[in-house]
């Protein structure tokens, strides 16, 4: 199952990240995972939140450009070689990872990672048939 990632366009300006987080806070939206990709002049804030559609709506009201992207959240054993094991499956199936990042919280005893694929549907199929646990929206709300 795929989940929605919330992506936000941000200029490299002092205090901008704070403003964005404040909007989410005021809307009662909780951040589960996040990462920032930065360039010289702008950045893209990528997050997994508990209410993605509501988050986009609040950003739109504040004239902040945001959208939702399909990503795959994968449970990875929190042991040496855990991530390598997952990546091995992806490599064998010729699946390219655009980027990835980790959740703040652990999921049971495992680490939880977010993967952005070009082909999220195929990635989901490959991972689940290899026995990897892919987390759904529902599981995230419960975190």
């Amino acid at each position: 199952m795929k989940i929605k990632q919330l992506s936000v366009f941000l200029e490299n300006r002092k205090g901008r990240l704070y403003e964005v987080c404040l909007i989410l806070g005021q809307a009662g939206i909780n951040i589960r995972a996040l990462t920032i990709a930065e360039t010289e002049t702008f950045g893209v804030l990528r997050m997994v939140v508990d209410k993605p559609a509501a988050a986009v709506e609040s950003f739109r009201r504040h004239s902040i450009t945001a959208n939702l992207t399909d990503v795959v959240a994968v449970e990875v054993p929190d042991t040496p070689g855990g991530l390598a094991g997952v990546l091995k499956i992806l490599t064998e199936h010729d699946l390219n990872v655009e980027y990835m990042y980790g959740f703040v919280e652990k999921f049971s005893e495992n680490a939880l990672l977010v993967f952005r694929f070009d082909e999220p549907d195929r990635a989901y199929q490959v991972l689940t048939s290899a026995g990897v646990n892919v987390i759904g929206e529902h599981d995230i709300e419960g975190l």
Binding site: F9, T39, T65, A66, N67, T69, E98
Partner: peptide
């Protein structure tokens, strides 16, 4: 100004 039509979560697309 970046609006939703040209925004992407991928930096390479933005570039």
């Amino acid at each position: 100004e970046v609006d939703e039509t040209i925004f992407s979560d991928e930096i390479k697309r933005m570039h």
